[in-house]
Amino acid sequence: MTPAATPNPTLTPAHTHEVPGAVAWSAPVRAGRTVTLTALADGANATMLMIGADRLDRLNIPDTLKSQMSARIKPGMVLMSDRGLALATVTASSLDWHDCLTGALPDQLLLLELTKHGFGEADLHACINFFSKVSVADDPRASLTYVPDHAHAGDTVTLRADQDLLIFLSTAPHALSDEPAAGVAVQIETPAHTDDPELREEATRALRLTRELIA
Results as ranks from 00 to 15, higher is better:
residue 142 A to N: 14
residue 134 V to Y: 09
residue 24 A to C: 08
residue 152 H to N: 08
residue 151 A to G: 06
residue 55 R to C: 03
residue 65 L to P: 00
residue 132 S to K: 06
residue 135 S to A: 15
residue 108 Q to A: 15
residue 132 S to Y: 09
residue 107 D to I: 01
residue 134 V to D: 11
residue 105 L to C: 05
residue 18 E to C: 04
residue 156 T to L: 07
residue 38 T to F: 02
residue 9 P to N: 07
residue 54 D to W: 03
residue 181 A to T: 09
residue 128 I to F: 06
residue 162 D to V: 06
residue 58 R to H: 04
residue 163 Q to R: 12
residue 25 W to L: 13
residue 46 A to C: 03
residue 212 E to D: 14
residue 140 P to N: 05
residue 66 K to M: 02
residue 120 G to Q: 12
residue 39 A to V: 00
residue 68 Q to D: 07
residue 95 L to A: 15
residue 150 H to A: 07
residue 190 T to N: 14
residue 197 P to T: 13
residue 116 K to T: 15
residue 165 L to T: 07
residue 206 A to G: 15
residue 131 F to V: 13
residue 167 I to W: 12
residue 115 T to P: 08
residue 57 D to G: 00
residue 92 A to H: 07
residue 102 T to Q: 14
residue 131 F to R: 11
residue 14 A to R: 05
residue 119 F to W: 09
residue 137 A to C: 07
residue 177 S to C: 05
residue 157 V to L: 09
residue 77 M to W: 04
residue 129 N to L: 13
residue 100 C to A: 04
residue 188 I to G: 01
residue 21 G to L: 04
residue 67 S to Y: 00
residue 73 I to C: 09
residue 4 A to R: 08
residue 143 S to Y: 06
residue 197 P to K: 13
residue 195 D to C: 07
residue 182 A to Q: 13
residue 188 I to L: 08
residue 161 A to P: 09
residue 188 I to K: 10
residue 77 M to R: 02
residue 180 P to W: 03
residue 84 G to M: 06
residue 173 P to W: 11
residue 71 A to M: 06
residue 42 D to Q: 02
residue 177 S to A: 09
residue 182 A to I: 00
residue 90 V to L: 01
residue 145 T to W: 08
residue 79 L to M: 15
residue 4 A to H: 11
residue 21 G to V: 04
residue 212 E to T: 11
residue 33 R to M: 08
residue 31 A to T: 13
residue 127 C to G: 12
residue 163 Q to F: 08
residue 172 A to D: 11
residue 35 V to M: 05
residue 161 A to Q: 03
residue 142 A to C: 10
residue 127 C to M: 15
residue 78 V to A: 05
residue 26 S to V: 12
residue 17 H to F: 13
residue 56 L to N: 01
residue 26 S to F: 08
residue 180 P to R: 09
residue 103 G to W: 11
residue 177 S to R: 03
residue 139 D to A: 08
residue 155 D to I: 04
residue 6 T to N: 10
residue 189 E to S: 06
residue 91 T to K: 02
residue 78 V to I: 08
residue 118 G to P: 13
residue 33 R to C: 10
residue 90 V to M: 00
residue 29 V to E: 01
residue 68 Q to V: 02
residue 158 T to G: 10
residue 94 S to W: 10
residue 89 T to R: 02
residue 4 A to S: 12
residue 135 S to M: 11
residue 176 L to Q: 08
residue 14 A to V: 15
